[in-house]
Amino acid sequence: MSWTAAGGVGHPAPGGFPHDALFHDSLDQLVATAAPFLRAGLDAGEAAVVATSASTATALREALGDDPRLVVVDRHDAYRPRTPAAIIAFRKLAEEQRATGVPRVRVLGEVDHGPSERNWLEWERYESVINEALRGWDLWGVCAFDSQRLPESVLASAAHTHAHVVTPQARTPNARFARPAGYLRSLPVPDEPLEATPPRFTADAVSDFVGLRHAVAAELAGLTAPADVVEDFLLAVDEMTSNAVRHGVPPVSLRLWTAPDRLVCTIADGGPGWDDPFAGYGPAHGDDLSRGGMGLWLARQLCDHVDISGGAHHPGDGGVRVRLTTLLR
């Protein structure tokens, strides 16, 4: 009996966001677990979507008899390089599929976690955030993790960010699952070696937005970097500086570093910050964009890494600090 044929926990009701982990040590094991999940969805009139590597997608197509109803999307289109964009992509996918009348969308996902610990951390955050960010979108996600290939830290995080684990035989509650808010607060803020060096540009007691933008733009003007990348970074700096001045506690300061491979800027103020670990993974006021609250959300889409420290996140640090990092690919 396959896990999708089991009653009770094997069939979460539509609504919410069931988010399961599939740990496997071979492509055959992955297919043996995922194919029945996708087939059961198609048989129930749901949409079945695969966002995986090409080899996994090919194997699943073969297992499902090349069913034309199976939707295969390029995983790099689904899992964008910046995680808030991935959330937007899956919400859009849900809207598009539900517009056809299906009651729910089943997704088999396989993230490319990237080459470094810094990349891994972004996806570890993402896997926890989507437990809340995709709640109510009538998606059922099963995330595949290769236990032979992925780093141990990624596998450990996967165990903390998925409420259920699936195998070819069963879907069972995961005792290692950590509530998203607490888990996100526990994740470290990575060190940035550039911060131990003299900044390229410094501004203290910031109040003049226009003058500051011109000054930062002047520092970035001579860099060998794509103009659109620099402009996005500059816009993120603007947004975070504006947030600090409008909502933080003076003084507001800015530090800028540049290196051949990345741009780094920190904006700090003396305020207590906020205790919302989901901040910036969607507009602060939902779909009502007229109310503002988009600064951190935009920054997370414009930069490769956005790290928040101090305030309620790390009370001992004094004040709040937002660090923006853009890679010069």
Rank of each mutant, 00 (worst) to 15 (best):
R82S: 10
D307E: 10
V165R: 15
L134R: 01
A13G: 10
G248T: 05
G293P: 11
R118V: 09
T258W: 13
V72H: 08
R329D: 14
M240Y: 04
Q169M: 14
L220S: 02
P251E: 09
L70Q: 07
T266W: 00
G211R: 04
W3C: 08
H76S: 12
I130P: 04
A159K: 10
P315S: 09
V165G: 11
D269V: 02
A99F: 01
A225T: 01
H24K: 10
S55E: 15
S186D: 13
P18W: 00
S242C: 12
G319F: 06
G114V: 03
A44N: 05
E95A: 12
D304S: 07
G319L: 06
L64G: 01
P103M: 00
L22P: 00
A6I: 10
P115K: 08
D307P: 01
Q148M: 12
P277R: 09
A51E: 11
P103V: 00
T4Q: 12
L70C: 07
T100D: 09
P18F: 01
V72M: 07
D261M: 09
D307M: 00
D208H: 08
S26M: 08
A35T: 08
G273R: 00
G109P: 06
T167H: 11
G273Y: 02
R255F: 05
G270L: 03
D307S: 09
D25R: 15
L42G: 04
P36S: 10
P84C: 04
G41K: 01
V49Q: 11
C265V: 14
C303K: 00
G8V: 06
T241R: 05
L30N: 08
G16M: 02
W274N: 06
G280H: 04
F37N: 04
L70R: 09
V229I: 12
P115S: 08
A284W: 10
L212I: 10
R291K: 15
G7R: 14
P68M: 09
V237Y: 03
G310I: 04
F145P: 02
S53A: 15
F209E: 14
A86H: 06
V142N: 07
G282C: 04
T4G: 01
S290W: 12
A203D: 12
D191Q: 14
G15H: 13
L235D: 06
T266E: 05
R179H: 15
T167N: 08
T4N: 08
V230R: 14
R118I: 09
A94I: 04
P14G: 02
R171K: 13
